[in-house]
Nucleic acid binder design. Structure first.
Lengths: 351, 351
DNA sequence: TATTAGCACTCGGAGTTAATGAGTGCTAAC
DNA sequence: GTTAGCACTCATTAACTCCGAGTGCTAATA
């Protein structure tokens, strides 16, 4: 069990190391007014904390550095609740004020602003749009062979794809096609679209349209909504600013880590609700031992969640980032709701 | 006037420095079979080349390094025409084979592959889409207050924007609006759209539609096609791989340079046709003294040009990059034409 | 008994020095 | 005109010293 003084010393050590990136020594700590003990006393407590695994030394006569266990304890028990700095909250406010109508823009800007405020790297996972329902189909012929298929979803998102039209297909047949699609498939969610097209519309096509087969395969391609790119990055280069990464190899491996999107996705795994902190090797992703990740989720409507991850050194400013992330993910949810459902209406009225 | 041997020595010096990034000395050069002269002879010629400003020394007893004038002379007179390496041309081929229907995708991939092949940074300026003509307008209401405006252009590009609908606006009025737009503005290029909307459609609206003013201002906003982001990057991090940039400050200033898009645009200035090489301070952009830029243009249809820039150290492999860039910009033009005008038809038939 | 002062010891980092080697210019011989 | 030879320069590297901030341990103190 830790004595009160040991708790204090652990807390001060972690804080100091977060600020300075330098191993902290007993004499240094004893100078602080918060720790009115002699260096020897602190030395003894530090030795105990080291025995218990909360602190480490980089070499025999160096100061102490928090271990992962130390950081974890700090985050779980020693974090002092913080209110958002005035400056930060002003910055955030501009983000949501300047915004007009594009939710993707809003998400992208969130990633940028978070990385600017924290000086860490942000990865934002956009909401899964595949749950949205189709509001309208449209087909615009371009020339003899090609046309654009357009799908508008109920949140105002527009998907479009160029596809090949069977030779000799007439304008009236295109009109018929669009009508069939609109009669049969409105309200279908994007994920289900392929399947429903087959179930509900195929036989109708076969009855009413020439060259139904060719058209149908083209349509299927056009309608296949790609599991689209949903990752937004902010401050990819920020890890530079951390002194422990002023090093060629370290930076290189960091970029390799985040450039290949897959591991980036892994960062979001096993998301419980709320804010999660994963320190160093607590991240199950390979080569993440040197980083901490703080994740949060936000909502962009029913059944549509996105996640935000902030990646920094293990020595990251947990208190500040947590506060910031909490505020932002909340504000972002609100803003996205407003964008999706309109300023004054509410989804329930809409139904 | 340069003697033949001096030409040879200049050429070998530049080549060697491009490969090794190390100042090249006389003894080193004399070992090469291409230069069967004694080190003293080479030393004398090098001294002359230095007097004439083609070579420089980093310090009194170092080997020689090409000056900007030296690189310029090398590029203008000593470059040996090269055929594309088999490996490179295979890589390029896959780029154009795998491609399906998206021209933006194709452009993005071009940037990536160029940066992979060269290990330099690529900036690709997409074609200016504002010359395209409107093929069709469409408006899809989302709820009481908002609707999506959709503009399809003749190349199959789809612009869309959410806008506010005046309160109490009915479905039939929206239909009328769309009809007016389609009657009056089809064929207008995107740049002219705002203006024509005012000239040709405003009075029609005022005659036929309730609340024309409110609708009109919403529409104007919705229709304003942003001078959209047309820059695609490849290998932003590649400058790392160049030994002369294994340095915190250098890399930082490089990123600052390319991150703020404006200077990046400047790189493309005063584009003559064909391939252009700008070495070090020949770039009129500030802080570009340490880089060389090779640019090329490609065409994506009538009046629609894009540019490609490859940024590397002054020590870049000019011969290879020029060949590669030449091939790619040509292939890219062809591929884009095919995408835009269809595989077998030609624009002339279309008219 | 818990804290503090004092002391010997450790180790990384900064600064100095010396050796090395690849380079140069110049002169004289070929 | 070309080359061999020589004296000189200078960046790089390794070895060495010095210094300071740190530690653990022991004995004195509150």
């Amino acid at each position: 069990m830790l004595t009160n003084r040991q708790l204090l010393i652990l807390q001060l050590t972690v804080k100091d190391f977060i600020d300075s990136a330098q191993p902290v020594g007993s004499r240094q700590l004893s100078k602080k007014p918060e720790a009115p003990f002699s260096s020897a006393t602190i030395r003894n407590d530090m030795a105990d904390l080291e025995d218990m695994g909360y602190l480490e030394k980089t070499h025999t006569s160096s100061g102490r550095v928090p271990s992962e266990k130390g950081y974890r304890f700090f985050v779980d028990h020693l974090l002092q609740p913080q209110t958002l700095a005035l400056e930060d909250s002003l910055q955030l406010r501009t983000l949501f004020q300047d915004q007009v109508g594009e939710s993707e823009e809003l998400i992208r800007n969130s990633a940028t602003i978070l990385s600017e405020l924290t000086n860490y790297t942000t990865i934002l996972l956009g909401p899964d749009t595949s749950m949205h329902a189709v509001k309208k189909f449209s087909i615009v012929p371009l020339d003899q062979q090609r046309a654009v298929a357009i799908i508008v979803t109920d949140n105002g998102h527009v998907e479009n794809r160029i596809f090949d039209v069977p030779p000799g297909f007439t304008a009236s047949e295109i009109e018929k096609t669009v009508n069939i699609l609109n009669e049969r498939l409105i309200g279908t969610s994007l994920v289900q679209l392929q399947q429903k097209l087959l179930q509900e519309a195929k036989y109708v096509f076969e009855q009413h349209i020439h060259q139904a087969e060719q058209l149908f395969s083209s349509l299927q391609q056009a309608i296949a909504v790609e599991p689209e790119e949903r990752l937004y990055f902010g401050g990819k280069l920020n890890m530079w600013k951390q002194p422990e990464f002023h090093d060629f190899q370290k930076m290189k491996s960091f970029f390799e880590l985040i450039e290949k999107g897959n591991p980036a996705m892994d960062l979001f795994q096993k998301n419980g609700q709320g804010i999660q902190v994963r320190i160093g090797s607590e991240n199950k992703v390979i080569n993440m031992e040197d980083y901490s990740v703080i994740t949060s989720t936000y909502s962009a409507g029913e059944n549509m969640e996105g996640s935000i991850a902030i990646i920094g050194p293990k020595r990251m400013d947990y208190a500040r980032v947590i506060t910031l992330l909490d505020t932002l993910s909340h504000d972002l949810s609100t803003a996205l709701h407003r964008l999706t459902f309109g300023q004054e209406t509410d989804r329930r009225q809409d139904k």
